[in-house]
Design a binder for these strands. Structure first.
Length: 194
DNA sequence: CCTACGATCCCCT
DNA sequence: GGGGATCGTAGGC
């Protein structure tokens, strides 16, 4: 058996609704300057979604959410952490919530100040610290340097459930995860599977 | 294992 | 002036 080459997603991959993209991004490999891993947790935020930063229209902070599909939207969370999104159709985005570390693990361990693989990138703030993502990458395309995206190597089961840490539209099951992964930020409610 | 809470910044009301 | 798309630590069970 020969390994097939790992392919980047098609150019129009992100030009769709965020819920579909969030589900399909599970299993992709994401690297920033060669450091990263397998995407194991995402959340979708849609244009008419009261929980989305884009809900009240375009502002200085969320301007990147109205950029081209594939654009990075980076924002500061709770005054301390950075969070990384990929823009889909205008005013929508997918929050990248957790990675299973695969590449440049030593770099991530230094940046995070810990050895444990399980918590290196399990959470949107931890993911950005591990990959050195900050506001300087806001507005850049994830389909070019320093980012690298590769399609999943094989099929995999995807879990879904309510989104984390929001107070509005809490009932939408728009959080997705690699079923059974120990690298997600929080367990999924049992039985939510696709 | 779990829950509680403070840190700390910026955008928006 | 309020409130986060969070995280680490402390303390209880």
């Amino acid at each position: 058996m020969t390994e097939l080459p790992s392919l980047a997603p098609p150019a129009d991959f992100f030009a769709r609704d965020a819920v579909s993209v969030a589900r399909e991004l599970i299993g992709f490999q994401l690297l920033v300057d060669g450091v990263g891993g397998i995407i194991v947790e995402t959340e979708a935020y849609t244009p008419d979604d009261p929980a989305s930063h884009s809900f009240s229209g375009k502002t200085a902070r969320n301007a990147a959410m109205f950029g081209d599909p594939g654009t990075a939207y980076v924002y500061r969370s709770y005054g301390i952490h950075w969070c990384l999104n990929v823009v889909c159709e205008p005013g929508s985005a997918v929050l990248l919530r957790a990675l299973e570390p695969t590449s440049g693990i030593e770099h991530m361990q230094v940046r995070r100040g810990m050895e444990k693989l399980r918590l290196l990138a399990a959470g949107p703030g931890r993911l950005c610290q591990a990959l050195a993502v900050d506001i300087s990458l806001n507005g850049r395309s994830l389909q070019g340097a320093p980012f690298q995206l590769r399609l999943p190597a094989r099929p995999h089961p995807v879990a879904c459930g309510p989104r984390i840490g929001i107070s509005r539209a809490v009932e939408q099951p728009w959080r997705f995860g690699l079923a059974g992964s120990r690298f997600i930020s929080k367990p999924f409610p049992l039985g939510q599977h696709e």
